[in-house]
Design a protein around this nucleic acid. Structure first.
Length: 278
DNA sequence: AGTGTATCCTGCAGGC
DNA sequence: TGCCTGCAGGATACAC
C-alpha cells in the first residue's frame, strides 16, 4: 500500500509523537506479522527508549537507545498509529498486530488489515546487512540521472518492473511508477535497456518531482492509507494515469489504458507513452 | 541470471 | 438481501 511518500509522511508524524518514549511492554496479537519469534521480539524492545524515527525505501525505522532498530514494512494496509492514552471506542484500531505501551501511558499500534506487513527488531549490524539489499534512494542527492540510466541499461525487464524492484531503486511502488513513466513519456512495458540517456534523465526528473510533490501532499489515499494522525493523503487529484483507465489523458485527451502484467495493473496513455521509442 | 507468475490475507464495490 | 467475482499503495518463493 504505502510507497515512499506515504512512509515518509508516517515517519515525520511519528517523530513528533514517539521520540523519547520508553517502551514498557509490547503485545503481539498477530505474531505472524513478526519476522522473528515473539518472545525474542518482546524481550528485545522492552525497556528501550525510542531515539529516532527514519525511513529507508518503504520501511519505517524506529531506532532504540541500544542501537537496535525496529524495522516496519507496512505492506499493503499497514498503519502506525500513536495514541497519547489507550485508545477507546471508535478510535480503537480494528486490526492491531503489534502494540507498544510506553511509560508515559502512550500507545503505538501497528494495525494491518491484510497482514502483508512485517515487524522486526534488528541489531545495528543486522540492520546494516539488511539495508544493503535496497537500491539507492531516488531523492538522495547522490542519485543522478546517469545512475538511473546505468541501472536501466543492464536489464531487459519491463521498465515498470525495474522501477518496482526494491533492489534496483528504493521506495517506488505501483502508483508513482505509473505517474513517473507518464511524465517521462515512457511506456511501462518497454525494456529497461531501451530507455535512452535523455529519456532516463527525464525519468529521473519525473520520479523526483512526483515523489516530492506526493510527500508535500502527505501521500496518496486510494483506499486504506492513513498517516500517523489517521488522516488520508491529498495527492489523488494530481494523478495523471493511476486508476484513470477509460478517462481522457489530461495532456492529450486520449483514453488512459489499463493493462495487467507481473500480476499488477499498469496505467498509461497510449499516445503520450508509445510502445516503441521514437 | 534474470524473468514473469502465483500466493499470502481481508474487505469492499459492483453485477446479477 | 445475498452471493459471486474482481480488485487493492507489497514482497517473495518458485518455475522457466
Amino acid at each position: 500500500m504505502p510507497e515512499l511518500p506515504e512512509a515518509e509522511t508516517i515517519v515525520r508524524g511519528l517523530r513528533a509523537s514517539i521520540v523519547g518514549e520508553r517502551i514498557r511492554t509490547a503485545e503481539v496479537p498477530r505474531p505472524d506479522l513478526l519476522r522473528e519469534a515473539k518472545g525474542k521480539f518482546v524481550g528485545g524492545v522492552r525497556g528501550r527508549t525510542v531515539r529516532r524515527v527514519d525511513r529507508r525505501a518503504k520501511n519505517v525505522l524506529i531506532g532504540l537507545d541500544n542501537g537496535h532498530t525496529i524495522a516496519v514494512n507496512l505492506g499493503m494496509t499497514g498503519r502506525l498509529l500513536p495514541f497519547p492514552t489507550a485508545p477507546r471506542g471508535t478510535e480503537r484500531p480494528t486490526h492491531p498486530g503489534v502494540v507498544f505501551r510506553f511509560d508515559s501511558g502512550g500507545v503505538l499500534v501497528f494495525d494491518d488489515v491484510r497482514r502483508f506487513g512485517t515487524v522486526e527488531c534488528l541489531s545495528s549490524e543486522a540492520w546494516r546487512g539488511r539495508e544493503t539489499r535496497f537500491g539507492p534512494e531516488p531523492l538522495s542527492s547522490g542519485f543522478s540521472g546517469s545512475d538511473l540510466h546505468a541501472g536501466l541499461h543492464g536489464s531487459r525487464s519491463p521498465v515498470r518492473s525495474w522501477l518496482l524492484d526494491q533492489r534496483r531503486i528504493a521506495g517506488v511502488g505501483n502508483i508513482y511508477a505509473a505517474e513517473a513513466l507518464f511524465l517521462a513519456g515512457i511506456h511501462p512495458k518497454r525494456p529497461a535497456n531501451s530507455v535512452s540517456r535523455p529519456e532516463a534523465a527525464a525519468l529521473h526528473r519525473a520520479l523526483r518531482r512526483v515523489l516530492r510533490n506526493a510527500i508535500r501532499a502527505g501521500g496518496t489515499t486510494i483506499r486504506n492509507y492513513r498517516n500517523s494522525a489517521n488522516r488520508p493523503g491529498a495527492y489523488q487529484p494530481k494523478l495523471y494515469v493511476y486508476g484513470r483507465q477509460g478517462q481522457p489523458c489530461l495532456r492529450c485527451g486520449h483514453e488512459i489504458e489499463r493493462t495487467v502484467f507481473a500480476n499488477r495493473s499498469a496505467f498509461h496513455c497510449p499516445s503520450c507513452q508509445p510502445a516503441r521509442a521514437s
